[in-house]
Amino acid sequence: MSRRPSRSVRVVASALAAGSLLTTAACSDDGAGDGSRASDVSASPLARKQPSSSPSPALTEAGAQAALITEADIEDDWTQVKDTEAESWHDSLLIGTVDVSDFLTAKADAADCQRLLDSLFDDDLLGRPSGASALRGFEQGDSRLLYQVAAYDRTDPQDSLDWMATLPQKCDQFTATDNGEERTVQVIETSLPDVGDAREGLLVTVKGTADDAPATLTLEVAAVRVGADAITVTAGGLDGAEEDSVKEALKTGTQRLKDVQAGKTPAASPSEIE
């Protein structure tokens, strides 16, 4: 930890002490360390940017597919749909232009809120993958769950996670308009299981109309980084969010992705064993 500057007569001594500490730290890197230093690094803000382990081989298309969850991993009555159907899921309530007048003192925040709506509609919350990717969709009544695994080896998924973390404050409530129809959007932070190297969760509600009747779209949105790869889950619908299913998906899915990264075959789900 850094200390506040001492009196001017001690400036030179402080500088020499700092140089000595740097030399000691550089030397200690050659050794195994006692664990306390690693603890200090993980607690620093910069540590969130660093991989938790040595780089794993690049995720392949086959690996991304193997890392996807199944119906058994999220329990309840979810039914898997065809990949082509899941790829076409785009909820019209997410279409709209953010009203900049809602952001009188922070115009730039409006751009972040617009990015959120657009990325939820386009299913690219963390940006376009720079490597292999795969997705799988599930339905349960009027609710949907979209699960994606992707490689971001040439971009940094942590940047997008850091951006997500700012949204509950920047976009806590705003208005979006589409063809004269106003929609009220609210964004709050949610808690996620302690999985992966970093994670962020949001609950997004959009109040508008559907089929000429008042409607509220509720989405549980989550992203987990595992090295340079990431998992994103979006679940919910007009019947409400699907918090429990999202958490189950992340717990099982993160382990599946770790297995793939380690060159292992993910454990079979109960439905695959029967």
Rank of each mutant, 00 (worst) to 15 (best):
M1Y: 14
M1E: 15
R3E: 15
R7W: 02
V9M: 06
V12F: 14
A13G: 15
A13T: 14
S14A: 13
S20Q: 11
L22K: 04
L22W: 10
A25W: 10
A32P: 07
G35P: 12
G35W: 08
G35V: 10
A38Y: 04
A38F: 03
V41W: 12
V41L: 15
S42A: 10
A43F: 13
S44C: 11
Q50D: 09
P51C: 05
P51H: 05
S53A: 11
S54H: 09
P55I: 06
P57F: 04
A58Y: 07
L59H: 08
T60Y: 03
E61T: 13
A62K: 11
G63N: 06
Q65H: 10
E71D: 13
A72M: 08
I74D: 00
E75V: 05
Q80L: 01
Q80P: 06
V81W: 07
K82N: 15
E85P: 04
E87H: 03
E87M: 06
H90G: 05
H90P: 00
D91Y: 03
S92P: 09
S92V: 13
L93P: 09
I95H: 14
F103S: 02
L104C: 08
T105C: 11
K107Y: 09
A110D: 07
A111V: 11
A111K: 12
D112R: 06
C113R: 01
D123N: 14
L125E: 00
R128M: 12
R128F: 10
S130G: 09
G131N: 03
A132E: 05
S133F: 10
S133Q: 15
S133T: 14
A134L: 11
R136M: 02
R136G: 09
G137S: 07
L146E: 03
L146K: 12
L146N: 11
Y147N: 09
Y147T: 05
Q148R: 15
A150Y: 04
Y152R: 10
Q158I: 11
D159V: 15
L161S: 04
W163M: 00
M164N: 07
M164W: 00
P168Y: 03
Q169S: 15
T175Q: 06
D178S: 14
N179V: 14
N179K: 15
G180V: 12
E182A: 14
E182G: 14
T184H: 14
T190K: 10
T190Q: 13
P193K: 02
G196V: 00
G196P: 03
L202F: 05
L203G: 07
T209F: 08
A210M: 07
P214M: 07
A215W: 06
T216G: 10
T216W: 00
T216N: 08
L219V: 04
V221E: 07
A222K: 01
V224R: 06
V226Y: 00
D229P: 03
A230R: 00
A230I: 03
T232M: 07
G237C: 00
L238M: 05
E242T: 02
D244M: 10
S245Y: 01
K247E: 12
A249W: 01
K251Y: 03
T252G: 06
G253S: 01
G253T: 03
T254L: 00
R256T: 01
R256Q: 06
K258L: 05
D259Q: 04
Q261M: 04
K264Q: 12
T265G: 00
